[in-house]
Design a protein around this nucleic acid. Structure first.
Length: 809
DNA sequence: AGCACGCCGACT
DNA sequence: GTCGGCGTGCTC
């Protein structure tokens, strides 16, 4: 007897496999999808291992296979295992990332009437029971869902159980039918000549059938019903009859749902490389032939905006394709625009697949299967495209590797695509190229330590030879206030904008809105209220007029005067895009102002539309939040103003400075992409803050040195690892109690196991304290190997774990 | 997730 | 006494 270790599609399975026996007549191999009994139900599972000895003694038989061939290969099973172990997610959640779109199938419950139900005493039944029996008398088998709809879920479950106990009905379980299939189109042609005596005999006296046969006999090639029905006034019934009689034959042809169908791709040619680009490309190329060695196969391509990283990616892909291998390119969701897709497709016409969540399920399904067949050299997509089944994978490129969107933080598994990519590359022997103008501090540290290889592109390459990076002016808003300037625009910004407008040039005004109006800052001296222990800014809660640290739960009263300069001008800061729009209209009339944020896009159409309107100079000033910071080159823009450069600094999170630096660097890169050069103005209350200084000087190294020192002092990553544990419950007090209880338990367990270097921050209310009617409290763990420690501690229901969290939870 | 079991308060 | 509320535990 042989046994299979199966990852089962049930949250109950957690990170384990379950052991099943393989019936002798069933052919099962590793990576195959199977149907297995689980409790009273039948579930989908993936075979991880086949053994002679089961890990668990009482095994049940595998019920059957779902497809003949394995759906996952060995490296992907290993990757799923790693994701599950490292991010502490259920194994099947990790597996599900790699399955074909729509492959995951739920278990469905069906209710059928039993033989004894015919002569039942109707009077002995309750009203609900009677209504269920009545519904069942009409159709012998019903989905549990239909009964839920009739009575409401809770009542339905109870009533069904009662009827089962009385032997009147029974339950059965089945796997949901596949949600997507290959799309086919039917082509019709005559199976025998129209004038054949046999044909005439079969058609008989039917005029309609004769007309249809006649119409088809005019066609030399098989045609679709759609076209056929336009040429005749036949109906489908006639067609079906003729098919049944064997006069007409049907051919099914697969129809590919192609997301690239609407693109008109013109082939592009490689650009000449600069010296720096060539050096980078050669280094990447040389890694292709190295089998597996000590030298890292991960590269960090650090290049300022406009330094030609994409050209290096494209040529690195060309080189890997020459070796008969293929690549995957990950870009942040927001950058996955038609422009980006065209840029890659034009270099590899018809050899680029696109994968992202806005495709229909059918398109995703077809792309996935074509990728698996090896039809594409390059797959481009957002985070989850990493798991595309690209055969002979040789190169993974992650553009803008510092972007937070590479971390999945809302649903399990809470994985980071960069780290998963490095793991996958190790498993298949591929090279990884991480690219950024502002690398993640952790990534840069690994590159400096030689774990990754650092490649630099310090110069801009633009059509207008060596266009320098724009000059950034940092304006101290405290000075403006002292000089009596009221409102959102400093004197410098006003002058710059007015000049640009009179030259018929365009302006972008950037407002960093995240976390606005919840922190407290002195308008006189710029002092921000922070937690003494955590260094993060305190968040204002109007309910009790208190300031709260969202990491350690430190509370204090709202001060009336600034603790630093004793001014009374201490208050919440923050302005919305609407307010900015109004003020821009007032100050710069008659300039045309266009607002770009999530509110504006909801009403006026897509991001595309707004962007196109601005590019074609239908507006003079573009106002926006994060969205305007992303990669579009608009030659007409000569002035970029950042209204509140320091708002990001005050997010209650240790990544606040890094985030601010990244956003400001990106914004500063927006200006001066055209021949006229550009001017950037940062307005801030903290002109001397290193994140703002470094961004204004386009100096990554300056930022990095200060930031890494800060991280070292406080023991934050990369000098430690973090895990965030969030407990969610409808009752706030209970939430707090449970969080405190678990913290104590974790402290006790870590001491009992002799694990040192572990510290606990909190418990405290999570940044988003209340979400969908439930309160949330969090504990932050700091240490080195958090996954293996936490794996040993069983967490009660209601807890979620996030390893290496980014952003605010 | 689902489903069973078991333990308490409001009714025929 | 029983029905039905929901906390707890189990699924190879």
């Amino acid at each position: 007897m042989r046994y299979a270790e199966v990852s089962v599609n049930s949250p109950a399975a957690q990170r384990r496999c379950f052991s099943y026996s393989i019936p002798p007549d069933l052919n099962v191999s590793v990576g195959q999808a199977v149907r297995v009994p689980f409790g009273s139900r039948v579930l989908e599972g993936i075979v991880f291992e086949i053994t002679d000895f089961p890990a668990f003694e009482q095994t049940r038989d595998i019920e059957g296979t779902i497809e003949d061939k394995p759906v996952l290969s060995a490296p992907y099973l290993s990757l799923a295992r790693w994701i599950s172990d490292y991010y502490l997610s259920p194994l099947f959640d990790a597996v599900a990332l790699m399955l074909p779109p729509g492959f995951e199938r739920k278990s469905l419950t069906y209710i059928s009437i039993t033989g004894t139900a015919t002569n039942v005493d109707v009077a002995s039944l309750s009203e609900e029971q009677r209504s269920v029996m009545e519904l069942l008398s009409k159709s012998p088998r019903l989905g549990q869902k239909q009964i839920d709809q009739l009575l409401g879920e809770r009542k339905a479950r109870v009533t069904v159980s009662q009827l089962i106990n009385r032997g009147l009905i029974s339950r059965s379980y089945e796997l949901q039918a596949p949600r997507v299939k290959p799309k086919t189109e039917q082509y019709y042609s005559l199976a025998m000549p129209a004038q054949n005596p046999e044909t005439l005999r079969l058609v008989g006296r039917s005029a309609r059938q004769a007309a249809l046969v006649e119409a088809l006999s005019q066609q030399s090639n098989p045609i679709t019903w759609k076209i056929l029905s336009e040429r005749t006034n036949s109906d489908r019934a006639t067609l079906n009859t003729l098919v049944k009689k064997g006069i007409i034959s049907v051919n099914s042809t697969a129809l590919i749902r192609d997301p690239m169908a609407d693109y008109n791709i013109l082939p592009g040619i490689p650009h000449n490389l600069t010296v720096d680009q060539s050096v980078a490309l050669d280094a990447i190329k040389s890694s292709y032939v190295v089998k597996q060695s000590n030298s890292p196969k991960v590269f960090l391509l650090h290049g300022v905006t406009g330094s030609g990283k994409t050209e290096v990616y494209l040529q690195a892909l060309t080189e890997i394709i020459k070796l008969g291998k293929r690549g995957i390119v990950l870009v942040p969701e927001i950058s996955l625009t038609p422009q980006t897709i065209e840029r890659f497709s034009s270099r590899f016409p018809d050899r680029v697949a696109v994968l992202h969540s806005h495709l229909t399920l059918g398109e995703q399904y077809d792309e996935w299967h074509r990728i698996k067949k090896g039809e594409f050299d390059v797959v481009i997509g957002a985070r989850s495209a990493l798991f595309a089944p690209q055969p002979d994978l040789g190169l993974i490129i992650i553009d803008e590797e510092h972007e937070w969107t590479y971390k999945q933080n809302d649903t399990s598994p809470r994985y980071h695509a960069r780290d998963a990519a490095i793991k996958l590359a190790g498993l298949v022997g591929a090279t990884v190229v991480l690219g950024s103008a502002t690398p993640d501090v952790g990534t840069y540290a690994r590159a400096l330590h030689g774990e990754f290889r650092l490649l630099s592109l310090p110069e801009r390459v633009t059509p207008t030879e060596n266009a320098p990076l724009p000059i950034v002016e940092v304006v101290d808003l405290k000075d403006e206030l002292k000089s009596g300037v009221d409102g959102l625009f400093s004197r410098s910004l006003k002058v710059a904008v007015s000049e640009a407008l009179s030259n018929k040039e365009q302006v972008i005004l950037f407002l960093n809105r995240r976390g606005a109006s919840t922190f407290i800052q002195c308008r006189q001296c710029g002092f921000v209220m922070r937690c003494r222990r955590c260094e993060v800014s305190l968040t204002y809660h109007s309910i009790n007029d208190m300031l709260v640290c969202h990491q350690c739960n430190y509370h204090r009263h709202m001060p009336n005067i600034c603790p630093q300069c004793f001014s009374t001008k201490i208050k919440f800061l923050g302005a919305g895009t609407q307010k900015l729009e109004e003020e821009a209209n007032r100050s710069f009339a008659p300039a045309r102002v266009l607002r770009w944020d999530s509110d504006a896009t909801r009403g006026k159409g897509s991001h595309e539309d707004i962007m196109n309107a601005f590019v074609s100079h239908e507006a003079d000033i573009l106002i926006g939040t994060q969205m305007v910071a992303k990669g579009l080159d608009i030659p007409g823009v000569t002035v970029v103003g950042v209204i509140n450069a320091d708002i990001g600094l005050n997010l209650p999170h240790f990544l606040a400075a890094e985030r601010t630096f990244q956003v400001l660097s990106q914004v500063a890169g927006r200006a001066g992409r055209g021949p006229g050069g550009g001017q950037v103005i940062f307005q801030t209350l903290n002109p001397e803050h290193f994140a703002i200084q470094a961004a204004s000087k386009h100096d990554y190294r300056l930022f990095y040195e200060k930031e890494i020192a800060f991280r070292r002092n406080l023991g934050y990553p990369p000098f430690s690892r973090l895990a965030s544990l969030v407990y969610s419950h409808t009752n706030d007090t209970r939430c707090q109690k449970e969080a405190e209880r678990l913290k104590k338990q974790l402290e006790v367990e870590s001491q009992a196991k002799g694990i040192g270097g572990l510290s606990f921050i909190g418990p405290a209310p999570a940044f988003i304290h209340r979400l969908r009617g439930r309160y949330r409290w969090q504990i932050i763990l700091r240490g080195s190997d958090l996954s293996s420690f936490l794996a040993q501690v069983p967490l009660p229901r209601g807890w979620t774990v996030d390893i290496d969290p980014v952003g605010l939870v």
